[in-house]
Amino acid sequence: MSILSTLAGIGMAVGPPLIYADQAYSIVKKKDSSGFSHDVCGVLLIANTVRVFFWLGNRFETPLLIQSLLLIVSQLILLAICLHYKPLNSENELNYAPLSPLPNSPNPGHSRQDSNSDYLNQPHISENNNENLKNLKGFKGLFIGGNGKRPFEFWQWEGYGNYLEFLAGLILFLGILQIILGKWNWYIDSLGFIALTIESTLPIPQFISNFRRKTCYGFRSSTLAGWFFGDAYKTVYFFLRGSPFQFKVTAIMTLCWDSAVLAQRVIYGAKAPNEASSQYSAPAQQEESRGLRANDERQFSIS
């Protein structure tokens, strides 16, 4: 039984950080981090930093502490990769297709072959699609502000150093609070709930990204499988090992969000954004083309 317990602890410590190895390899291979929300890195970095301070007041199992430290290191590496291969228009557009036929219109995600392209060669955006874009932007505004920017542009910074400065400030702030309030149980328990509640929101940024683009392109199936089965494993592990109550509650919440992202993968698939957008705009184009044909037939009959 002790051997099984040791193996389970090793799996708990090493498994979650290894989930993101394939995601990082895929980004480097394609030289494109679009489709993977680097907010995921932010959630894990903040949650596990707080969890380390939670350990100082409530010495939970060592494998969980090692897991947090390895996750911090792995997410710092993954964040650097995401920023290095981040498309310039990833925060400004909902897809890669240009919305303007002008030759000088900036759109790094689309290469124009010549300046003779006309409006007919561009993806058609019907009124229904425009309305859908407005709705999606409104949904996006619920999470990152109505103008597309978060307060203080949080976790939307350009330089990698800005993220490191934020994490250093967070560690300093938590260190001061630990010195002042670390002897109080209510503060330590609050740290546990804060850390694990933040971690339970891990799939939400990816869920929003998939919803906006109507595709799971760029988000590795291996990462999704690691989320779902890993969180299922953690949930069982927490209950069997008698881990603190905070771990059990947040594990169940995270598993529910994993299921939502899994449903998106089944519904949307993993097509490139331009292919997915054309798929969703096809019914509107067919409806409009039928209306144009009907108008032509009526004009012909009148003449």
Rank of each mutant, 00 (worst) to 15 (best):
L196E: 02
I188L: 01
F229S: 15
Q286T: 11
G9M: 10
D258R: 05
V50R: 02
K29A: 07
Q113M: 06
Y20N: 09
A80R: 13
H124F: 12
G269D: 01
F154S: 13
I66R: 06
K31I: 04
W55S: 05
L65E: 06
S68Q: 00
C82L: 11
V50S: 01
P16C: 01
I27H: 05
N132R: 15
L120D: 09
Y119I: 12
S34L: 00
S277T: 12
I66M: 11
G35H: 04
L88T: 05
Q122K: 02
S34R: 03
D22K: 13
Q156R: 13
N129G: 04
N135M: 11
F219Q: 06
V40R: 07
F139Y: 14
E297A: 15
P103M: 00
A276L: 03
L7Y: 06
G9E: 07
C41Q: 02
S115F: 11
A225I: 13
I3N: 11
K30M: 01
F152W: 14
K30S: 08
E165I: 15
V50C: 05
P123Y: 08
R220G: 08
R59W: 10
Y163M: 08
G138A: 14
A168G: 10
Y25Q: 11
W184A: 09
D118N: 10
P17M: 14
E297L: 15
L133M: 11
F152R: 10
D189H: 09
N210W: 04
K271E: 04
L292M: 12
A260M: 06
L174A: 06
S34W: 00
N116Y: 12
Y280M: 03
L94A: 09
K214E: 10
W155G: 06
V40P: 05
M12V: 14
S209F: 09
A260N: 01
E288H: 08
T197A: 11
S5N: 14
P87E: 07
P103Y: 01
I302F: 11
A168C: 09
G138T: 13
F300R: 15
Y96H: 10
V14D: 05
W155P: 10
A260W: 01
L71S: 13
A282P: 00
T197I: 04
E297S: 14
I46M: 03
F166V: 05
A13I: 03
S2C: 02
L196P: 01
V52Q: 01
D118M: 05
N130W: 11
Q178V: 03
I194V: 15
E297V: 13
S126W: 04
S278Y: 04
I188V: 14
L292Y: 11
V266I: 15
G230C: 03
K31M: 04
W184Q: 15
V52F: 05
T250Y: 01
A270Q: 08
T235F: 11
A13Y: 04
A21E: 06
V43T: 02
T201G: 03
N132T: 05
S277F: 14
G57Y: 03
L224H: 08
L102Y: 01
I302G: 04
L120T: 08
K183G: 06
C256R: 08
G291E: 11
A225H: 08
C41S: 09
I27P: 03
L94T: 10
G230P: 03
E288G: 02
E287W: 08
